[in-house]
Computed example of a mutant assay.
Amino acid sequence: MSVQHEPDRNGAATLRRHVLPTELGSCTVRVQHGTGSRCPAPGTADVYLHGAAGSWTSFPPILSGPPAHDRVLIDLPGWGESTKGARLEHFSIEAMAQVVTDVLNSLGYRRWNLVGHSMGGFLALHIAAAWPDRTASVATISATTFGVSEAARRPLHSLASFPAFVGMLLLMRSVAALGPAAPALVRAVGSTPVTGLVLSPFFADPATISAGVIRGLGDDARPASFSAAARAAAHYDFGQWRGIRCPVLATRGDSDVFTPPSDLNRLAEIVPHAQLVTIPGCGHFANIERPEYLQRLLDDLRSP
């Protein structure tokens, strides 16, 4: 394991950067330490899990203020700075969850509050079901679950009902088929207006999203990893979530085309104690479009 110190992208806080070996390849993790002796539960971390179109850089807008617990921001194998040697052929929800818990064990955490965006929300719910005694809470931000699983399993059949996701999946599969040339193509396209057009369905009002944010999301695109994540979701057994015992907050934007209202309703059938919230004026990235609103929800979830 290697450890480095670096300022966050706003220069406000020191992050410890760890590189850890896992069964799916090396995993780069950033840790921002909590308020020391004032931390209400030593050994507990707030853990942030990004989506299949993202990395740890999706979360800084909701990380303002000093943390009560340590904050752990993970680039899952295959994304961000964790692409070298990623074993995409072994991807599954279960394998990715094992990576997360192995990382947290290596860092010395006994319990965790999970915050997952998109695919990260799917992953957080699985971890809560598989490790119920160690999961203190789960907050999902537009978790891509039931609808995406069906669309990944039968994309052409789902084209009419889930056009944005199916279109994205087919695009990612096509680019991934280019093999080693794919990253160069993604970088080249990322600096053009095409990226804004491709990503516009993610947002309620794309015109308000800065070019820097769009460019960052384009840079985070990992076509092969996106395709592998879709395969992992396609045949998942959602009945496992009946084992979730911790508080659950499930959110979606009111203009979210990737997480329909039916996903939250089906989650409530399996996890009846889940709190469901639709965030107004928001698409798939509440952590970018409505960070203050989302942060208040997270604070309420974690308050005693």
Rank of each mutant, 00 (worst) to 15 (best):
P7M: 11
D8A: 06
G11D: 07
L20S: 01
P21G: 05
P21S: 09
S26L: 12
C27M: 07
C27Q: 01
Q32S: 09
H33A: 14
G36S: 11
T44S: 12
A45H: 08
V47G: 07
Y48C: 02
L49C: 10
L49Y: 06
H50W: 07
H50K: 05
S55H: 03
S55C: 10
T57G: 01
F59A: 00
I62A: 05
L63E: 11
G65E: 10
D70Y: 05
D70A: 08
D70G: 07
D70N: 10
R71A: 12
V72D: 10
L73D: 07
L76C: 14
E81M: 10
G85P: 01
A86K: 00
R87N: 11
R87D: 13
L88C: 03
E89Q: 15
A95H: 09
V99K: 03
T101A: 08
D102T: 15
L104T: 06
N105M: 09
G108Y: 10
G108P: 12
G108V: 10
Y109P: 11
N113L: 12
L114V: 12
V115P: 05
L123R: 05
H126G: 02
I127G: 02
A129P: 06
R134A: 14
V138K: 07
A139T: 13
T140F: 01
T140P: 01
I141H: 01
T144H: 02
T145L: 15
G147E: 09
R153M: 13
R154I: 14
P155Q: 03
P155V: 03
S158D: 09
S158G: 08
S158W: 08
S161N: 12
F162C: 13
L171P: 09
L171S: 11
R173E: 10
S174R: 15
S174T: 15
S174C: 13
S174N: 11
V175F: 02
A177E: 07
G179W: 06
L185Y: 04
R187C: 10
V189I: 15
G190D: 04
V194L: 11
G196K: 06
F202G: 04
A204W: 02
A204P: 09
P206D: 08
T208D: 12
G216V: 10
A221K: 04
P223F: 00
S225L: 07
A233E: 14
Y236H: 08
D237N: 14
W241R: 06
G243S: 12
C246I: 04
C246R: 05
P247N: 03
T251W: 01
R252N: 02
R252D: 08
R252Q: 09
D256T: 02
D263K: 01
D263F: 00
N265M: 14
L267I: 12
I270K: 08
P272I: 13
H273K: 12
H273T: 11
H273R: 13
I279S: 06
I279E: 00
I279T: 08
G281C: 12
C282E: 03
C282H: 03
F285T: 13
I288P: 02
Y293S: 12
R302V: 12
R302I: 14
P304F: 08
